[in-house]
């Protein structure tokens, strides 16, 4: 199972996800599919329920109704860290790194959580590969606390990749990155998808969505208003209206 998790591909499926906050349906019955080898984007105005849906998929919160399937396996009732170990990784909108660890150790924590016997050599290899992917070798020994935002975003992403995920959930991965870093990010994400990973990202930047995503889901008031190939959805008048409404 563990070895399979690092190599095999998987699709992430959400069926009828409902999540309520004090009487309000923040997510009101959403179906969604993130297929392997594709980059899927989730867009929508503030308050549309994107982050809540994300939390339901990642397992940070448990939906009131609906199911989350990872490669055909129902993970709806699995704790968040168990989903990660099954190959469902995520990053946060608000950067989540470990300030008192070095950059390398931040990534290594992600590489070391496989089930079964710990294999330090394999973990070190995965760490080195993830650091190299984002050009973080030079700062590897530096404390994470002293890195600028852009670097920290890459550290977080490297940590997620070090675990060998099959599906990657990204919450605004380009926020705080400069142009060069964004370009690198785009290359890396495309490369990951080409190697069969399923990517689902929440993104505000329409240009980035148009550049990266193969397909797009548009969310408003907790419901899907459109879904399909990127160009079609971005041209949909309902979507542009909602987007403009968001300012």
């Amino acid at each position: 199972m563990t070895t399979a998790a690092t190599t095999a591909t998987a699709r992430l499926t959400a069926r009828g996800i409902v999540y309520r906050y004090g009487g309000i349906e923040a997510v009101a019955g959403v179906d969604l599919l993130a297929p392997p080898g594709r980059i899927t984007a989730l867009i929508g105005p503030n308050g549309a329920g994107k982050s809540t849906l994300f939390d339901c998929l990642a397992g940070t919160v448990r939906p009131d109704a609906g199911r989350v399937l990872l490669g055909g396996r129902d993970v709806t009732r699995l704790a968040a860290h168990r989903r990660v170990r099954l190959g469902l990784a995520r990053t946060f909108q608000q950067i989540a790194v470990f300030p008192t660890l070095s950059v390398a150790d931040n990534v290594r924590v992600g590489a070391e959580q496989h089930r079964g016997r710990p294999d330090p050599r394999a973990a070190a290899e995965r760490t080195a590969r993830a650091l190299g992917l984002f050009g973080l070798q030079d700062v590897a020994a530096e404390p994470a606390a002293e890195q600028p935002t852009g670097v920290l975003r890459l550290v977080e992403l490297a940590r997620a990749l070090a675990g060998g995920p099959r599906v990657l959930l990204l919450d605004e991965p380009a926020a705080g990155l400069d142009t060069a870093q964004t370009a690198r990010l785009v290359t890396v994400l495309r490369g990951l998808a080409d190697r069969g990973m399923a990517l689902l990202l929440v993104e505000h930047d329409a240009e980035l969505v148009a550049e990266l995503a193969d397909s797009v889901y548009a969310l408003a008031d907790g419901r899907l208003v459109a879904g399909g190939p990127t160009r079609t959805v971005l041209a949909d008048p309902r979507v542009t209206r909602a987007w403009r409404g968001a300012g």
Binding site: H81, V84, R85, F98, P99, D105, Q113, R159, G163
Partner: peptide, 18 residues
């Protein structure tokens, strides 16, 4: 490392599979 991750950022540690 995992324990330090928990101390520094619980949600981040969970997301790393800890």
């Amino acid at each position: 490392r995992a324990l330090t991750a928990v101390r520094d950022h619980e949600a981040g540690a969970t997301a790393a599979g800890v």
